[in-house]
Nucleic acid binder design. Structure first.
Lengths: 166, 166
DNA sequence: CGTCCTACGTTTAGGGCTAAACATACAGGA
DNA sequence: TCCTGTATGTTTAGCCCTAAACGTAGGACG
């Protein structure tokens, strides 16, 4: 039913000879896989009473270790979203009692801390997400998995360098 | 500055021994690469006067070959978004004169066709996007690239099977 | 025929994100 | 001391998407 990246490249070559199709077989499957993972994660989390954006915030705080507190710039850098998005995520999470905003020490910083309630919610949802995703990638054999990790790492480094330098 | 997927996995193991971290080094880089590609594509397209969603629609029609016309279900299947999203994409594109909706033959079908204006816009933007993305993945050597394509394909098949069967 | 019922496209409500406009705190120089 | 520039967090406007509610058009069947 779905058209494969290779078929997409062939279709462009047929319809517009000369189209630079070289990247399609790399970029398209990555975009599609990301959507499959994201949609599936959203489904799992809906049952757990949380959404991906909030879990991303709480996980980052939880993973940072005691005292489970980070500044907003640090949060933005670690979650790859803009400062405005962090501001909104924190506002929503604070509304639900999952985090609290406290004035930090330096300059005009604001620090975000995990509450007991937020801590409980992370604990109960992280394993569900990671367990499910482990099942989704389960039929990659160890050697394949290792090779894929290495290649994705190489690609990420190259893309990041070229993106940020423009 | 940014934390690597491996560091994320290690942090979970340190903070919560027993957390199933096996999938992190696969899923996280895929989500991040997708975001890097999507954001970069959005920047390129903004200058070209179009957005990713509209280009996705127009490209699908363009690639399908003459008469550059497809039904809405077909469009939904090929672009991996919901029927509601297609309806909105088509409405926006029609407003701009890039496509037209025409009553189809069977049942109650609606067919979407590329206009001359839409055709022109695709032609001028596709090469910019694909050219840019070819540059982004350029430092993958041929052997690496081939291996990555194969692994992504294997992974996609597995994930798709497990996602749709639930 | 008339009545379900199913398939299908559209509309609506709500959520998330980005970019840009704002507001403000602090630092350093004149 | 005052002023200006810069860094930082928040708010707003505008997109896009999904899920679910809607409104129908055609069949299937009694």
């Amino acid at each position: 039913m779905t058209i494969s990246p290779r078929q997409i490249a062939r279709a462009w070559e047929r319809e517009r000879p000369g189209t630079p199709t070289g990247s399609i077989e790399i970029v398209t499957p990555i975009l599609r896989l990301a959507k499959l993972f994201a949609d599936d994660r959203a489904r799992v989390l809906r049952r757990a009473g949380i959404d991906s954006a909030t879990l991303d915030l709480l996980s980052t705080l939880r993973r940072s270790g005691p005292p489970y507190r980070l500044g907003t710039r640090e949060l933005a850098a670690r979650t790859l979203v803009t400062a405005g998005a962090i501001s909104q995520r924190v506002a929503r999470a604070e509304e639900r009692g999952l985090v609290v905003r406290t004035p930090g020490d330096g300059r005009r910083a604001v620090e975000v801390s995990l509450t007991a309630e937020g801590h409980t919610l992370v604990e109960s949802s992280v394993d569900q997400v990671l367990g499910r995703e482990a099942a989704l990638v389960a039929d990659l054999r160890p050697a394949e998995r290792e090779a894929l990790v290495t290649l994705l790492d190489t690609l990420t480094q190259g893309v990041r360098r070229r993106v940020t330098s423009s």
